[in-house]
Design a protein around this nucleic acid. Sequence first.
DNA 1: AGGAAGATCTACT
DNA 2: GTAGATCTTCCTA
Length: 199
Amino acid sequence: MKTVDLGGSVLRKKFYGRSPDDVAMSLLGKILVRKIGEKVLCGKIVETEAYFGESDPASRAYGKKFQKFYEQMRGGVGKSFVYMVHNNWMFNAVAHEKNDVGAVLIRGVEPLIGWDFMKKHRPVEKIFELTNGPGKLTKAFLITKEHNGIDITDYTNEVFICDGTKEVLEIGTSHRIGVSKDLKKHFRFFVKGNPFVSR
DNA sequence: AGGAAGATCTACT
DNA sequence: GTAGATCTTCCTA
């Protein structure tokens, strides 16, 4: 197996054992890594959203309507949580405090390594259209249901997240995208001015 | 079997 | 900027 210097170490379980909005903000600037055999794809996370449990109208776990999702969002932290909406896979990281329910949705990444490879799967004219949306980045990174429930704190897996850049980020917040009944607080976080942020 | 889904693309006002 | 058609899973009937 090839080794790649990612400029940081893989994020531990402890990182995900905090409230979802905390984790969502902390994930900005971190590196999403996808291994495909010999190939390695890396992207800097520039946009996230926090989702909570049964009391969050926007959450998949809302009112325990979808049992399967609820169980997974309540399960062990530091695992991936992938679900399909309108022919798009959404990549989440399970994150919450003990005995709580929640996850963080990755909405946008900035391609660092292997963007030529991503482009093969998503033929687009403008580079920033490659990964500036939750469904787009999963297509570019070839993330599917097969990667649901895997441990993203284990760097031998096909998908994981590691610590990355040390740069100072200017963080913006807003309401969550496309959500009609959103909560009062802002639960979307993004790197200001980054072109890979959706909208 | 039928519906709803927190996305995306395309085509407009 | 907004609006409508399209799409595949999972849920409830």
